[in-house]
Design a protein around this nucleic acid. Structure first.
Length: 695
DNA sequence: GTTAGGG
DNA sequence: CCCTAAC
C-alpha cells in the first residue's frame, strides 16, 4: 500500500503537470486529485463493487423499467457515484481532456454527459478504458456483467443495444461502436466500470476477436464525434489505476504451480520495466549482453545430479533454481512498484502479445496508443487523419534456448521466461520498419515517412530490440500522428513496449490499466498455462484481452521517481514478494524433512522436500520452521491463518527439541526417536519419503 | 552461496 | 518475508 500510494502520488504529480492545461472546472480538479489517490488505492475493490452494483441495478432496473430513461439514468448515476467516490481521478481527467477536446474516450464521455446526460450516464458504467476492453469483449462474452449491462443499456439506449447486437462488436466496426457510443453517450466512465467489464470479460474468457480493437474503438469514437482529439491524460491515469487492479488480481492468484507460472509470466512483463536487481537480475543482464540465451547449463546440472545422485549437482541445480526463483520473485514483487511501466510493456504487447487492430478508419485519438498516440494527443495536435495500426504480434529478437530433453515443460517455460525477462529487463526499444528499412528518424511524421500511406502499411513493421529503451518524451512528441491505422495490420508489428528500462524513461504512459486487468483475469480464469512462454498468444481470449488492454503506461512511480530522486528506485526494488502461506502439505513436508535432516541444513531440506517449489527458498523454510516452532508453543487461540494440525505441531516441537539437543548440524544421521522416519543418511538422497509439495 | 537471527 | 552479519 505504501508503495502504491507513493506511486500514486508520483503519478498524480506527474499527470497534473503533464496535462496540458486546459481550463478545468474547479470541481473536476478536485476530483481528479482526490480521485486518483483513492482510485488507485482500491481500484480493485471499487471495480468489484461497481460491477456488483451494476449488475444488480441493471437487473432490477432492466426488468422493471426497460424503456424508461429514468431507469437508465438511475443506473448510470449509481455507477457514476461509485466511480466518483472511488475513481474520481479518472473522471476529472477525462473532463479535462474533454474540455481540451482532445481525449477520445474522455471526450466522448464528457460530451455525452454534457449533452445527453441520460444516455451517457448509462453508458458510463464502463470506463473509457473499460469501454475499450469491454467493448470488445462484451459482445462475445456472456458474462453477467456484460449481460446485465447490455440489457440495461439496450433498453435505455438504442445505440448501445445495437452495439451489442452487432455482436461482432468486437469486430470490426469500431466506427459503429464509436458512433453509437458517442451518440448515446455510451462513453462511460472509465474507472470501476471499465475494470469490471474487463474483468468480466476476462473471467468469461470470452474470446474477443479483436483485442486491439478496443483501443481502436476508443479512438474511433472520438473521431466520429469530433475530429480531433488530444491525447488524454485521463487515459494515463486510468492506466495507473488499472495497473493496480491488475496487481491485485495477480496477487490474488497463487499457490498452484500453474498459478505460479502465471505469476512468472506476469512478472516478466513487469520485470521488463524495472531495473534489474539481485542475483536474478544480474544473470539476466549477463544474458542480455549476448544475443542468445542459453539455459541449458542448469538443466545439465540437473541431469548430472540425477545421474550422480551426488549432492554436488543437486546443489548446483538448487542454486540455479534459487536464482531463478529470485528472478521470478523479484519480478513479481517489483512488478508492483513498476507495474505501471510493466503494464505498459504488457499492453504494448509484451513480447508476444498479439494485438489486433482493426479499423482502418482514420481516427483521432489518443488514448490508446500506447505511446505515440498519447504523446501526440498531449501535444494538442489534432490530426485530421489518423493512421491505425493493428499489431498482432511482436517480433522479438531471436532467442535461442537450449534445454535437454529431460527438461520439463515447466522448466522450459521458465527458461523462456527468463530469456524474455532478460530481454525486457535489458530494455527494449521499438523499431519501426518500413518496407524492410528501419525508420530511424523519430522526428519525422508518419506522413513524411510514408507510413501513413496505405500502400506502405503492409510493409510496416515494428520490432522489439534489446537495448535500453529510449524513452521518447512521453508527453509530447513531435510526431503528430495519433494513431496509426492500417487495415491490414502487419502481423509482424508489434506493439511497442514502452520502455522497459524505464527508470529513466518516461515513456509515454500507456494507458491502459485494462490490459492489466484483462491479462490477469484471463489467466486466472481459464487459461491453462500456455505452452508457450507467452500465454497471451495462445489464448484467444487472452490475446484479446491483452490486446485490448494497452498496457499500462509506465508507472507512475517511474514518473514520480524521475522528477524526484533516484532514491525512489530503491523503494521500487524493495518490492516484497507476495505472501504465500504454507499449506498444510508444505508444513508436513517441512516437518518431515527437518525430522530427518535436522535444523540447520536448510539447503538440504529445501532440496529434499521443496526442490520443486521454486517459490520456497531455504530461507523461507528456515523462517517457516521458526514460525512453526513459535506456533507450536502458543495457544491455539493465538494462532492465525490456516490451522496447522496439532499433530504436526507436536512433531515440530519434538523435532525442535531433539535437534536442539543433538545439534542437527553435525550430522543428519541422528533422528529423533519421536520422529518416525528413518533412516538415514541425510546427505544424499536416501530419504525420499518426504513428499514434495509442488507449489 | 549458506546460516542464523533480528526486524 | 526481508535484510544482514558472519561464515
Amino acid at each position: 500500500m505504501v508503495f502504491k500510494k507513493r506511486l500514486d502520488y508520483g503519478f498524480n504529480t506527474f499527470n497534473i503537470p503533464d496535462v496540458p492545461r486546459a481550463p478545468r472546472s474547479i470541481r473536476r480538479r478536485c476530483r481528479s486529485k482526490r480521485v486518483v489517490e483513492d482510485s488507485q488505492i482500491c481500484a480493485f475493490e471499487l471495480l468489484a463493487s461497481l460491477a456488483g452494483k451494476l449488475l444488480q441495478e441493471s437487473e432490477s432496473s432492466a426488468s422493471s423499467n426497460a424503456s424508461e430513461g429514468h431507469d437508465r439514468v438511475s443506473i448510470g448515476k449509481d455507477v457514476v457515484k461509485q466511480e466518483i467516490q472511488y475513481d474520481d481521478d479518472e473522471k476529472p481527467l477525462k473532463v479535462e481532456c474533454v474540455e481540451q477536446g482532445s481525449c477520445d474516450a474522455s471526450a466522448v464521455a464528457s460530451e455525452s454527459t454534457n449533452e445527453n446526460s441520460d444516455d451517457l450516464k448509462e453508458f458510463k458504467p464502463a470506463d473509457s478504458v473499460l469501454d475499450r476492453a469491454s467493448i470488445k469483449t462484451r459482445p462475445a462474452c456472456s458474462g453477467q456483467m456484460s449481460g446485465d449491462l447490455k440489457s440495461v443499456i439496450r433498453k435505455g439506449n438504442v445505440a448501445y443495444g445495437n452495439f451489442h447486437d452487432d455482436g461482432d462488436l468486437c469486430s470490426p466496426d469500431l466506427g459503429e461502436l464509436c458512433d453509437g457510443k458517442s451518440e448515446n453517450g455510451f462513453k462511460p466512465e472509465r474507472d470501476a466500470k471499465g475494470l469490471e467489464t474487463g474483468k468480466s470479460s476476462i473471467a468469461n474468457t470470452c474470446p474477443s476477436k479483436d483485442p486491439i480493437a478496443l483501443p481502436m474503438t476508443y479512438s474511433a469514437p472520438v473521431n466520429s464525434k469530433r475530429d480531433v482529439k488530444l491525447p488524454s491524460r485521463g487515459d494515463r491515469i486510468p492506466n495507473a489505476s488499472f495497473s493496480r487492479h491488475r496487481n491485485d488480481i495477480k496477487l490474488g492468484s497463487r499457490d498452484d504451480d500453474e498459478n505460479f507460472s502465471r505469476f512468472n509470466r506476469l512478472s516478466y512483463r513487469f520485470k521488463a520495466s524495472r531495473p534489474p536487481t539481485r542475483v536474478g537480475d544480474r544473470r539476466i543482464r549477463k544474458l542480455l549482453t549476448s544475443k542468445y540465451w542459453k539455459v541449458a547449463p542448469k538443466l545439465k546440472d540437473f541431469e548430472h545430479s540425477k545421474a550422480d545422485g551426488g549432492i554436488r549437482p543437486l546443489y548446483r541445480k538448487r542454486k540455479s533454481y534459487y536464482n531463478y526463483d529470485r528472478c521470478q520473485y523479484e519480478t513479481l514483487y517489483k512488478r508492483r512498484k513498476f507495474f505501471d511501466r510493466s503494464s505498459i510493456v504488457n499492453s504494448d504487447g509484451g513480447i508476444s502479445s498479439e494485438s489486433v487492430c482493426n479499423s482502418p478508419e482514420k481516427v483521432a485519438d489518443g488514448d490508446k496508443g500506447s505511446s505515440a498516440a498519447m504523446s501526440h494527443g498531449a501535444c494538442g495536435i489534432p490530426p485530421l487523419l489518423t493512421v491505425k495500426f493493428s499489431i498482432k504480434s511482436f517480433r522479438i529478437p531471436e532467442l535461442y534456448i537450449e534445454v535437454p530433453e529431460t527438461a520439463t515443460v515447466g522448466s522450459l517455460k521458465r527458461t523462456v521466461m527468463e530469456a524474455v525477462t532478460a530481454l525486457l529487463g535489458g530494455g527494449i526499444r521499438v523499431g519501426v520498419l518500413l518496407q524492410g528499412k528501419k525508420v530511424r528518424d523519430d522526428s519525422r511524421t508518419l506522413s513524411q515517412t510514408g507510413i501513413s500511406c496505405e500502400e506502405n502499411l503492409d510493409s510496416l513493421g515494428f520490432t522489439l530490440e534489446p537495448g535500453p529503451a529510449k524513452a521518447p518524451p512521453p508527453v509530447c512528441s513531435e510526431e503528430p500522428p495519433l494513431l496509426i491505422s492500417c487495415d491490414k495490420a502487419p502481423q509482424q508489428l508489434t506493439s511497442l513496449p514502452a520502455t522497459p528500462v524505464v527508470d529513466t524513461a518516461i515513456p509515454d504512459a500507456t494507458p491502459d490499466p485494462l490490459l492489466l486487468t484483462n491479462t490477469a483475469h484471463p489467466v486466472d480464469s481459464n487459461h491453462e498455462p500456455v505452452s508457450s512462454q507467452t500465454d497471451v498468444l495462445t489464448d484467444q481470449s487472452l490475446s484479446e484481452s491483452r490486446a485490448i488492454v494497452p498496457v499500462p503506461a509506465m508507472n507512475v512511480e517511474a514518473l514520480a521517481v524521475i522528477p524526484a530522486s533516484p532514491k525512489a528506485r530503491k523503494t521500487e526494488l524493495a518490492q516484497r514478494r507476495t505472501r504465500r502461506p504454507f499449506s498444510v502439505l508444505e508444513v508436513e513436508a517441512l516437518v518431515q524433512a527437518v525430522e530427518e535432516l535436522g535444523t540447520g541444513r536448510w539447503r538440504d531440506i529445501k532440496l529434499r522436500a521443496f526442490e520443486n517449489a521454486d517459490h520456497r527458498t531455504y530461507v523461507d523454510l528456515k523462517d517457516k520452521w521458526k514460525t512453526l516452532v513459535h506456533t507450536a508453543k502458543i495457544s491455539p487461540q493465538q494462532r492465525r491463518g490456516e490451522p496447522v494440525p496439532q499433530e504436526l505441531l507436536d512433531r515440530v516441537l519434538a523435532a525442535h527439541a531433539y535437534w536442539s539437543q543433538h545439534q542437527a548440524k553435525q550430522q543428519g544421521k541422528h533422528q529423533p526417536g519421536t520422529l518416525r522416519i528413518t533412516d538415514t543418511e541425510p546427505d544424499r538422497n536416501g530419504l525420499a519419503t518426504v513428499p514434495t509439495v509442488p507449489m
